[in-house]
Design a protein around this nucleic acid. Structure first.
Length: 591
DNA sequence: GCCGTTTTCGGCCCGACTGTTTTCAGTCG
């Protein structure tokens, strides 16, 4: 069993213990261990070594033994026994809004409810409403929650969220009683998908702002309406929450509601170590602490909170408790990439394959964005579903680009292709065909069900080709739609480093990969990134904004991203692999 | 179950809202 699978088991154990009414801190210990494990990036052997596991913060003797057993045998008697006390379907009840372990336990023990279907029946026939601690309102809310759950998987793409977030922000800003307004939560941290949007406003007169917020034209259900907090479900199924706080509380609330939960816990612990308690409103003197606490700091903005805790300002994207505290303490936080650092981009399609805009339109749009270059890469011939180009059409496209380039000044179109990586890792064109191009993106588009080792070998073989400039969408995932295909990312990263292949950060909001979690490793290994929109239209160039969010989340700076290089410097990077091969004179330079 | 210039016991983040209660438990973030 690998680290991710073991983490899933630990999460399941936590839920089962919760159902059993176990000590909440014991439950938290399992949840913490589940979160800590994948971040430690242990090898298969280290996962079997209890002593190595115990070095990880949050994993002690007992859980280390359990992880080791899972890694070695793929099973755990303790877990198997736990599972016997509850039916497996019961886990789906945790996904319902308003239903936690206590209520699930009551429903199961008193009414033998174990699934969405049996819960729905019991809500309708009145037996839920008759249960102690439940009532008619709860039954009604559960029915609505079941319906919502069925209608929406519960997550939304960053693109959907972005549209809603910007429009609600604008609405709230228009209110005369509003001071500051921000979106917090995972949206501000630029997670690849979000479950809800958390808005935060400062005001001394919250009521009207709450009313304006809830009076949204797309509001379907009002979930909460209090004096400082409101919550609604939009017709799309996206939940939006609003908090209104005072001007002085705003930085604290912004920090608190931006999260992540793990980041907040660490912040509070840092405060406690100084004798302060930190909540979403302020610093205060912690109760029951021995010794004299440091005097309370004055805080004007979010940076002031970090400063008070001896930290550089941590950008929201990094707040995942993945090393940002150590870096902030040592003044080693990266100068994260910004959208204005981009000088050009690659991976754009045109009407020649499956794009909606012509070569000329795409080029013009890129110039209007202030870019210096645009890499055109239509599909290769095997992607016939996408009208991929054969050698003849590819050559004709090259001539057209050359002629356009002659008429351009200070802007260049690079001619490339998104070349299919065939089932055996060979490419869709001969090396001679590839050599005529400025750059080549190699991507997998078919035979997605290969085993992890087959897929990994396939991609590594493709990267060993000196004409492959960069690797496209590494795992083929479509967020909220299609799981990634199986591929061993650390091996891919090593191969990219060894061959000098750039890895794409596909900025299309449905893809957003290589996933941000892997970029620190890639950078450590010396792999370069290219942030590519995978644009199929002029509008698709805007995906670069989402790519920047993901890149920042992956700790990337402009030095790590090749398309921050200006025209005049980028050409050399595109040619580097072939030049190295020519210099070494061997076909198997990289093997 | 984890952790330790509070170190082997006794803490572990905490406030808002809802619904079911009549002072609070459960859930959420």
């Amino acid at each position: 069993m690998n680290a991710d699978e073991i983490a899933d088991v630990l999460e399941s154990i936590a839920q089962l213990l919760e159902l059993q009414g176990e000590n909440p801190f014991k439950i938290r210990a399992y949840t913490n261990a589940a979160r800590a494990l994948p971040g430690a990036a242990l090898s298969a052997d280290e996962l079997k070594d209890p002593e190595r596991l115990e070095e990880i913060d949050g994993i002690g003797k007992a859980i280390a033994e359990k992880i080791s057993t899972l890694a070695a045998t793929g099973t755990l008697p303790f877990y198997e026994n736990l599972k016997e006390s509850f039916p497996p379907e019961i886990f789906q009840l945790f996904d319902l809004q308003g239903l936690g372990a206590k209520k699930i336990k009551a429903l199961y023990e008193k009414l033998n409810i174990r699934s969405l279907t049996s819960l729905e029946r019991a809500c309708n026939d009145g037996s839920v409403a008759g249960l102690a601690g439940f009532g008619p309102k709860t039954a009604q809310n559960l029915l609505r929650a079941i319906e919502d759950h069925r209608r929406h998987a519960g997550s939304f793409s960053i693109a959907t969220a972005s549209e809603v977030a910007e429009s609600i922000l604008e609405r709230l800003r228009s209110h005369p009683d509003v001071g500051q307004v921000e979106v917090a939560g995972s949206y501000r941290r630029r997670k690849e998908t979000v479950r809800d949007l958390d808005f935060l406003a400062s005001s001394s007169a919250p009521q009207g702002i709450i009313e304006l917020f809830l009076d949204h034209p797309d509001a379907e259900t009002i979930l909460a309406r209090g004096p400082t907090k409101a919550s609604m479900l939009l017709r799309s199924g996206l939940q939006c929450d609003l908090r209104v706080v005072s001007r002085l509380e705003f930085p604290f609330a912004l920090n608190y509601f931006t999260g992540s939960k793990e980041h907040n816990v660490a912040m509070r612990n840092r405060a406690l170590s100084r004798g302060w308690s930190l909540n979403e409103y302020r610093f205060s003197i912690a109760e029951g602490k021995k010794g004299t606490p440091a005097p309370l700091p004055e805080v004007d903005d979010e940076a002031g909170i970090y400063q008070a805790l001896g930290l550089d300002f941590i950008p929201p994207e990094l707040r995942e408790d993945r090393g940002e505290f150590t870096a902030a303490e040592n003044h080693e936080l990266p100068d994260l990439i910004r959208i204005e650092n981009l000088r050009g981009t690659f991976h754009c399609h045109t009407t020649e394959s499956d794009g909606r805009n012509t070569l000329e339109e795409m080029s013009l749009a890129a110039q209007e964005l202030g870019l210096q270059y645009l890499g055109i890469s239509d599909h290769s011939k095997s992607s016939f579903q996408a009208n991929g180009l054969d050698e003849k059409r590819l050559a004709a496209q090259g001539e057209k680009i050359a002629s356009l380039n002659r008429a351009l000044e200070g802007f260049r179109i690079f001619h490339g292709v998104e070349c299919d990586i065939l089932k055996d890792g060979t490419l869709d064109y001969s090396d001679d065909g590839l050599a005529s191009l400025d750059f080549v993106i190699a991507s997998v588009h078919n035979s997605l069900t290969q085993s992890e080792s087959e897929m990994t070998d396939r991609i590594v073989r493709a990267m060993s080709n000196p004409y492959v400039t960069m690797l496209g969408h590494v795992t083929g995932r479509l967020l909220l739609t299609r799981e990634p295909y199986k591929v061993h990312i650390p091996t891919i990263i090593d191969a990219a480093a060894a061959t000098g292949t750039i890895i794409e950060l596909n900025a299309n909001p449905r893809r957003l990969e290589l996933d941000w979690r892997w970029w620190p490793l890639a950078v450590e290994k010396g792999v370069k990134c290219s942030i590519n929109p995978d644009a199929h239209s002029v509008a698709g160039l805007q995906h670069l904004h989402f790519g920047i969010g993901a890149a920042r989340k992956g700790w990337l700076t402009k030095k790590d991203v090749v398309n921050c290089l200006p025209l005049g410097k980028i050409e050399g990077v595109l040619q580097a692999k072939r030049v190295a091969q020519r210099r070494n004179g061997a076909a198997d330079t990289f093997s």
